[in-house]
């Protein structure tokens, strides 16, 4: 999965937790970096992103992912509170408030990945 967060500590911690659970995690510090990785051929099963980031925000990243048909199938989880309307508009699969309950998040991830 691809973890996108500008906060180095939370990003590294999330990646470490996912890897502990058996996932392979790639990291990006903002939306632009995530797009660059995808353009280079990274093919994640899920993207987990923060919304408030410099250079390219999570909002813009969500739009970019849904605009390209090749990336449209990648499930998207946002780590920030969102209304149902906002989620529908950005076609986000789920949104989790920070601090996040890791077990709930893991369950949702395995569901979205078909595990």
């Amino acid at each position: 999965m691809l973890v996108v967060d500008d906060d180095d500590d939370s990003r590294t911690a999330l990646s470490a937790l996912f890897e502990h659970e058996g996932y392979v995690a790639a990291e990006a510090a903002n939306g632009a970096e995530a797009v660059r990785l995808l353009e280079k051929g990274l093919d994640p099963d899920l993207v987990l992103t923060d919304l408030m980031m410099p250079v390219m925000s999570g909002w813009d990243l969500c739009e970019a992912l849904k605009r390209v048909p090749g990336w449209r199938g990648i499930p998207l989880i946002v780590l920030c509170g969102m209304t149902a309307e906002q989620r529908g508009k950005l076609q986000v699969d789920d949104a989790f408030e920070k601090p996040t309950d890791f077990t709930t998040l893991l369950n949702r991830i395995s569901e979205l990945c078909g595990l």
Binding site: L38, D43, P44, D45, L46, V68, P69, G70, W71, G73, I74, P75, L112, C113, G114, L115
Partner: peptide, 15 residues
Amino acid sequence: GGSANARFLCRRLRA
């Protein structure tokens, strides 16, 4: 494009 959808289907169907 990626094969996230195909992998999802494979996991579900295999299970």
